[in-house]
Write a protein that binds this DNA or RNA. Structure first.
Length: 452
RNA sequence: GGCGACGUGGCCGAGUGGCUUAGGCAACGGCCUGCAAAGCCGUCUACCCGGGUUCGAUUCCCGGCGUCGCCUCCA
């Protein structure tokens, strides 16, 4: 069974399942107010690999990932561009899915939207008020973090320490709050802002409430795993957890957080810093599998550096795998090698050790190529099947992406004819032509093949 | 200031108290090939600095230096 680092207990521990054979996962999704950046891509890809792997091992996965479609940044952008906020959320969400589809992210089983859960949030906030965990100020309802005894569990420090270390940071709405860490549950709206009716006045829910309502509502109490990027650990996840605790409900059993994407200088790449590297740009300029390959070769908790060189290396690695897929496409299928698969599982079960799992993949490909060269069809077939299994579990698709047009096939045939006639000048010219068109030309004992 | 993470060979990036040892990319040599491509075999460059523990540390401990993150919206 999978052992995963748990951010709450700060150790690798078995992912215990609430229900045998079934896994319930909640992943914090995007706020839709702009194009997805590389960090979004990493998070979704990390959890995509997690999900595919779990499913590959035979588990049934309920994978919930929300869309935050009420948020200050959305409103700000709507006002700045003078257009309806729904226009922004709708379009940004469409772009989001376009990008996610491109990188082969398997769509979640459920994608709840914050706007669909406003009633439930109002209900929950009322409950929190009744239980004495929330209070009213001029501009809304706030959560009283001091009313939760273990607040700070995911921040790895107590409320006092947080305050002690606070520095000269400006705390939003500090004057009206009982504690600087108190966060807004319900924000009363100003004229022109989106608003929903509530007992405390028209307004909109705060960011930290939707995930509580949606995760608990869809997956139920004590669901298995809650995930997101490192930056969500605190305050977002802490604040979710605090609400659940205040409600007296069992929340996520296990917490998982992926590391950042950093730029060439080693700095975090995020939208808020302005050094945006758009996921759409990446998939436009590179094979969409490239990013997955880069991420698989580093551990999900480590920061990963995205540079040109890095991506180019992954493209080359992928080319090698594709070449393998191409040369073994005719190999009759066989039973996969159980010991390799067992090793793969033990690697993945150890906190999703994809770097070593991909190392195993490459080793296996090498062994399969050698077996093929040696004419050992049986061994080759078994290894091909093994590689296929591993790739399925990792969400990697191998093989030529494009159909080869007939004129290219004809040229290859002419090339072979020229070679047979020892007319090497013609053969070389044809090869150069094909290569100029972007084809990889391979001439082997059985003739010439072209592929992208 | 508080808390956390990290510093590995030309680049990226794993891992480990010693043993055979990542892996990818690049480079070099060989096999194969008419020449290439693809593939295979082999080679090369390591563990920030200073102490300590140990028979032995890149790996554990302490200190230092450096980088990054969170504490404010953020995957």
């Amino acid at each position: 069974m999978l052992h995963l680092y748990d951010s709450a207990t700060r150790q690798v521990r078995e992912l215990a399942l609430r229900e045998p054979g079934k896994v319930s996962i909640y992943l914090c999704g995007p706020t839709v107010y702009g194009p997805p950046h590389l960090g979004h891509g990493r998070a979704t890809l990390v959890y995509d690999v997690l999900r595919r792997y779990l499913e590959w091992t035979g588990l049934e996965v309920r994978f919930v990932s929300n869309i935050t479609d009420i948020e200050d940044k959305i409103i700000e952008r709507a006002q700045r561009e003078n257009r309806p906020w729904e226009d922004i959320t709708t379009k940004c969400e469409a772009v989001w899915w376009e990008a996610m589809d491109a990188v082969n992210f398997q769509r979640p089983t459920d994608t709840p939207h914050a706007t669909e859960y406003v009633d439930e949030m109002i209900e929950m906030i009322s409950d929190l008020i009744e239980r004495g965990h929330a209070y009213t100020t001029d501009d809304g309802i706030y959560f009283d973090v001091q009313s939760v005894p273990d607040y700070g569990l995911l921040a790895y420090q107590s409320l006092d320490d947080m305050r002690a270390g606070g520095g000269e940071r400006e705390v939003h709405g500090a004057a009206a709050k009982r504690h600087p860490a108190d966060f807004v549950l319900w924000k009363l709206s100003k004229p022109g802002e989106p608003a929903w009716p509530a007992p405390w006045g028209d307004g909109r829910p705060g960011w930290h409430s939707e995930c509580v309502v949606m995760s608990l509502g869809i997956l139920g109490e004590g669901f298995d795993l809650h995930g997101g990027g490192q930056d969500l650990r605190f305050p977002h996840h802490e604040n979710e957890r605090a609400q659940a605790v205040a409600l007296g409900q069992r929340f996520a059993n296990h917490w998982m957080h992926n590391g950042f994407v950093v730029d060439a200088e080693g700095e975090k790449m995020s939208k808020s810093l302005g050094n945006v590297s758009n996921l759409l740009d990446l998939i436009e300029h590179y094979d969409p599998r490239t990013y997955r390959m880069v991420l698989l070769q580093s551990h999900y908790r480590s920061p990963v550096k995205i540079t040109q060189d890095n991506l180019d290396a992954a493209v080359k690695a992928l080319a090698g795998l594709d070449a393998f897929a191409a040369r073994t496409s005719e190999v009759p299928t066989a039973h996969p090698d159980g010991s390799v698969l067992a090793e793969f599982r033990s690697l993945m079960d150890d906190d999703l050790d994809t770097p070593r799992a991909t190392a195993l993949l490459f080793d296996t490909v090498r062994a399969a190529n050698a077996a093929l060269d040696a004419g050992d069809d049986e061994r080759t077939g078994a290894l091909v099947a093994t590689i296929d299994e591993i790739c399925t579990a990792l969400g990697l698709e191998l093989g030529a992406s494009d159909e080869v047009p007939t004129d290219a096939i004809d040229k290859a045939a002419t090339l072979d004819a020229a070679r047979a006639a020892k007319d090497y000048a013609t053969a070389d010219a044809l090869r150069a032509e094909l290569q100029a068109d972007g084809w990889t030309v391979e001439t082997g004992p059985s003739g010439t093949t072209v592929r992208r």
